[in-house]
Simulated scan of single mutants.
Amino acid sequence: MLTMAEVMRIPPLDGCSVIAGHRGLTRRVQSVNSFDAPDVVPWYKAGELVLTTGYVIRNDEVAQVKLVQQMAQRNCAGLGIKVNHFSSEFSTLLLQAAEEHDLPLFEIPGHLSLSDLVFPLLRELFTFQDRHKEQTRRKRFFAGLLQEEWTSRDEVLARGKEFGVLPGHGFICIYVSQGSPHSGDRLTDPRRLPEFIHFSGENTGVDWMMSQPGDAVIILQSPLEGEACELPVTARKLAGDLIDHRRVSDSEGGVIIGIGTYQDDVMGISTSYRKAREAARLGCRVAPPRQARGI
């Protein structure tokens, strides 16, 4: 879910100013609501960002404070109020309540309507939710593939098509670990691996996919159907580039890289993954990960 800090960077919300409750900018936003009636508070939900003209509470400081308190009790994400209905600055009591409850309070400029904010927000929230669902499907698919949960080739290809897994192509797995595969040490951050891969060269002609079923795995896929395209050579080059880049970007700690065997069918990916882990374990025994090494 998006945080309030991230939401406040979405146009046109980036034109609004947070005036209190800055400590609550880490609150997660799940939905957006707008109101002008005072009796809707009982229906607020956790994670809800509330937008209002503030008309019904503009002259009632007690109601303003009560609104913030009730929203905080329901773990709402934040409150936006249009400034044109307040004849002067927001009341001190309102600002103090927002600060006390760490509820982000921001002012909406007079030239923006509530609908100007609601629709872009909903679009971003739906996009984020769709992306999160896709990432969850991807994680589950590759975890099942590497752990041999999928036994039907047709099922693997049907599920994997969404993530770029193609029939008739060759595959090699590269296992990347910081520390021993058995030690429980922190693994190389999977979020940084795409950066490492692009660093090694974007013109290799090899497709790559990421999977993190508890470890960091790169799956290389040959670009042409039925053509190995020197995939083992490419895998070794990529591993070497990863090690060199690791030395430059993070001098502390070591990294172990295991390269699996080449497989000419999608159902062999789990075998390549297993061989890559075995290579990493062998590398740990031969040379403890004080420096970056590859097997």
Rank of each mutant, 00 (worst) to 15 (best):
I19D: 02
H22L: 11
M71G: 07
L67W: 09
E61Q: 13
T26Q: 08
Y55T: 07
G47E: 04
A37D: 13
L67E: 03
V18G: 04
I81F: 09
R58I: 00
A63Q: 08
R27M: 02
Y44N: 02
R28E: 14
N59S: 12
L13F: 15
A46R: 14
V40D: 01
M71K: 05
G78N: 07
I57M: 02
D60N: 15
V56P: 01
Q73C: 01
P38W: 06
R28D: 03
G21H: 13
R74I: 01
A77H: 09
Y55G: 01
G54Y: 05
M8K: 08
T26R: 08
V40P: 00
K82T: 14
P11I: 10
P11T: 09
G80F: 12
V40T: 12
D14I: 06
Q70G: 00
C76I: 09
H22Y: 13
T53Q: 08
V83M: 11
L67H: 06
D14S: 15
L79G: 06
P42L: 04
Q64M: 07
M71A: 04
R9P: 00
G47R: 05
M8T: 07
R27L: 10
V40K: 06
T53I: 00
N75F: 11
S31T: 12
G47F: 09
D14P: 03
F35T: 15
G47N: 03
